[in-house]
């Protein structure tokens, strides 16, 4: 499988996700600079975590208008899978490729720790490596991860099975007390209508082997590799 990781000024998880893709899928991604207008022919585009443009104006707002984003949007429309992790998720919402917005964490702190997530829908190339309802431990590292959308949009996301992951307790209980950042309905990650675009705040690429503290992120990339090999 061929993939591309877009590198913005201020991206800092681009290499982590490149290592995860190379280790788990067996093929290293092409790194594409945000100023490029062309992206090679690939099966997957990744917008990595970080602090593109220093989070100026709003997290992801400047990156969403980078030259490369026109091509990312056009590929996404053609059905090319696009994955946005953390800042990548913020960029996807700012670019209008996913609904809603990510605002400052409810507690105002930058939170860097492992959280538990419930896998809500395994019917996508990104989540097929997990079981429905499975609880996984994955780290978060963000200040603006508080997912917000109007109630109609939230109902639609839930009704159409477009919520990918929710924050929960270690036992899998979903509730306000287990939302680290105040996200509406504990939402940690969402799909577009066709489930070919996924945005999530947690970092599965930081949990791909025991030496990193756990390997719950590995099935995420294994699922992608399987889906794209088929």
């Amino acid at each position: 499988m061929k993939s591309a990781v877009i590198v913005f000024p201020g991206s800092n998880c681009d290499r982590d996700v490149a290592v995860a893709l190379a280790r788990v899928t067996g093929s290293a991604p092409t790194m594409v600079w945000h100023g490029d207008r062309a992206i090679p022919k690939v099966d997957l585009i990744v917008l990595p975590g970080g602090f593109s443009y220093g989070d100026y104006l709003r997290s992801g707002a400047m990156a969403a208008h980078s030259p490369v984003m026109t091509e990312v949007a056009s590929r996404a429309k053609q059905g090319v899978p696009v994955l946005g992790i953390c800042n990548g998720f913020q960029i996807l919402t700012e670019a209008g490729l996913l609904p809603g917005a990510l605002i400052r964490n409810a507690g105002l702190h930058f939170i860097c720790r492992d959280v538990h997530l419930k896998v809500e829908n395994t019917g996508s190339m990104f989540t097929r490596g997990y079981k429905t309802g499975q609880v996984v431990r994955i780290p978060i590292a963000h200040a603006d991860g508080n997912y917000r959308a109007d109630p109609m949009t939230l109902d639609r996301l839930e009704g159409e099975g477009l919520v990918a992951f929710r924050y929960c307790s270690a036992e899998g209980t979903v509730g306000e007390a287990h939302s680290p950042n105040g996200s509406a309905r504990n939402i940690a990650g969402i799909f577009n209508e066709k489930r070919t675009v996924l945005g999530l705040m947690p970092h599965p690429e930081r949990m791909i082997e025991p030496m990193l503290g756990g390997s719950d992120g590995r099935p995420f990339f294994e699922g992608i590799a399987e889906a794209l090999a088929a």
């Binding site: 104006l57 709003r58 707002a61 208008h65 919402t93 609904p99 809603g100 605002i103 959308a149």
Partner: peptide, 9 residues
């Protein structure tokens, strides 16, 4: 509309 405000929020 395009940049200065995010009209979602």
């Amino acid at each position: 509309e395009r940049l200065l405000a995010n009209t979602v929020i």
